[in-house]
Design a protein around this nucleic acid. Structure first.
Lengths: 229, 229
DNA sequence: AGGGGCATTAAGTATAGACATATCTGCAAC
DNA sequence: GTTGCAGATATGTCTATACTTAATGCCCCT
């Protein structure tokens, strides 16, 4: 019946939320806590390490551990593949390729992805439907410098997203969320009025410092992205 | 010169990104890895536990550890206090209370927060400015059932957000991101045209199952929220 | 053939002890 | 006063070992 690291973590969190250890105060050191919970120091260490990761406490060698003044509030968003997102909602997924061309990267894209002069890119426009209704508009640019195979891939049946996670499963990315007004083309594809406010995510993806792809995903009217924390 | 858990983690990640252990494949078990890195099993365990948290691998007792087919892509967003967000950008922060009233919770709010019938709420409308320009419009509802002190707090000088993190530092929340069209009032406050697309976050906050507050934060035109991952 | 139970296996967690590393504090030298 | 060094101390990490827990898959019984 000795304390597990979960017990210790829960108890410490309790002491903090109940104000016994108020924000800014110094938490007892690991050795003392281990004694008071009658467990090994490693157990206390794991509990506290996780609390620090959660943004509840702040730890510094020698200085000790203190309760954060304002806990760092952070939310984790899972970035799903559209197909999975739609199917998880119990809707039928359908995909369509709207447009495909290969060209020199436009200036704005070169700037964004640090592409070399004269780099060629594959530009794709696709639509994703849920139960037949427009769900998401995808405007994607893939660097052919890094991924020449993309030029031969067939994107008429499956979306570039799925192809890319298979081709380059591990990469870094920067994602932004913003709001845009529907232009005529978006309004047409997404079945809304021009001028409607739409939710958009933009993502640049990199692999070992090299740009792979940039994508704009624009959602149907009224879409919201939600997370718990 | 024995391997640290960081070394092990980095090496395993390397093997995965370089395709030596392709997606779906089974990773050697902890005992074998410990032997091959010449370290304790606990060291391998920590490395693999972190990789699992990062969504790179998937672990199941007895079944072993496998490389995920598609790594779970997830982004962490820090949810800042507006003041800090603005000041971090090097801009001067200014706050203004636009409106304050106490009333019975409207139906839509009662439904959203599971408030009891006839629950009273404090309704605040505030503006946050960066270098004098409108930055964010805040439309906040605070449950007076749970936080009666809020009725006496002075929100003319500092925003409710800062008051709330001091009053209720630890709580759960649900956050949504969406796009809205500016109505006349928003357009006026944020200095944009009616109909403009604006980025909005909505957040409901709870403490021990009780609703504390609901807030709509609408940002100035062109705002984007960004995260790396 | 089908179903139940048990052995086996891999991860999950705990422990005591040790050493590493960062950094705060006070004291001493300039 | 300021700088720099040394000691003290809290966290960070590793090891070796042991026990726990979940799940697979095989064997045996029906």
């Amino acid at each position: 019946m000795t304390a597990t690291y979960r017990d210790v973590k829960a108890d410490i969190l309790d002491k903090i939320t109940q104000g016994i250890w108020p924000p800014g105060s110094l938490v007892p050191n690991e050795t003392d806590l281990a004694r008071s919970y009658d467990c090994a120091r490693a157990t206390v260490n794991r509990a506290m390490r996780e609390l620090a990761e959660d943004g509840i406490i702040e730890r510094r060698r020698k200085a000790g551990t203190r309760v954060r003044m304002a806990p760092v509030r952070q939310a984790r968003f899972a970035i799903p593949i559209v197909r999975a997102e739609i199917e998880d909602q119990g809707a039928a997924y359908r995909y369509a390729l709207v447009r495909r061309d290969i060209r020199a990267a436009p200036d704005w894209l070169r700037a964004r992805l640090n592409l070399r002069d004269g780099g060629r890119v594959l530009h794709l426009v696709c639509m994703h439907y849920a139960d037949g209704a427009p769900y998401q508009h995808e405007d994607r640019w893939i660097s052919l410098d890094l991924l020449p195979k993309a030029a031969e891939a067939d994107f008429t049946a499956t979306g570039p997203n799925e192809w890319l996670v298979a081709a380059m499963p591990f990469s870094n990315a920067e994602i932004s969320f913003l709001a845009v007004q529907a232009d005529a083309s978006l309004a047409d594809h997404l079945g809304c009025a021009a001028g409607d406010a739409l939710f958009r995510t933009e993502r640049s993806t990199w692999w070992e410092g090299q740009a792979i792809t940039f994508v704009r995903l624009t959602f149907r009217r009224g879409h919201r992205m939600t997370a718990q924390y």
